[in-house]
Amino acid sequence: MRFDVRFARRTLRQLTSTAGALLALVGLARTAAAQEPYAERDSRHSFWQVQAGVRSTFVTDPGFDPFSTADALTSFSVGASRTVFEQGAYSLAPGVFWDYGSSSATARGQQTSLSAHRLGLALEGRCHLAPWAYALLRVTPSAIHQRARLSDPFAAAPYVANDWTFGIDASAGAAFLLGPQSPSPALVRWWLAAEAGYGYAGSGSLSMHADLPSGDPRRTGDVNLGSVALGGSFVRVYGSVTF
């Protein structure tokens, strides 16, 4: 599936607006929560969370083959979320995530690389199995911007292809409290988490054009490597700070 750039940008703006609204909602919720006696809430269940980690996606799309020898797209991943709903052992935490990953290889001797930004809005449900652990289920629609690059000695300039597409992830995982274990609400806590799931991604075009400066009179033909969809099963391991 493919979207044009204007549609993708509009989608990204909408996602960003929605994320802002959700964060505002989170802020309101936190304000409301602050009016409750904090002793009734376990700060190990309800918190702001900032996380950073690594995501590895098993990309099975053949369009990824020119850019990787191992079908793996490894990304740096950061995100933030806030618990907005809690009942018993269950809680709900929306959040915002940004992944950046790249892969490089050679395709029949030509140097290639592909990088991808993924900006997603997550809705995460948690089941607090113990004060020191919770299981999670997460759904993350996202906007994906991908950039492919190809170098060739006969090209007037490196060949590039930029495209926007969208994706949606569904994953499950678990987080473990490293410490401190104290229920004191004022503490900053450290967690280690891992999740695995499947991410669907739309196809982005790999019709590559020479990245000539504007005004360069040379005319070039495109290199057509088809399209690539950066979806597939993935695993994410991250550390987080809650407060």
Partner: peptide, 29 residues
Amino acid sequence: MIRGARLLALASTVLLAACGGRPSEWDSL
């Protein structure tokens, strides 16, 4: 903690599975 260790093992297995290959045509000169 045992459950956590199992989850980590599962994650590692998925990571290893991600180390696939590609058709040899991309490596042929």
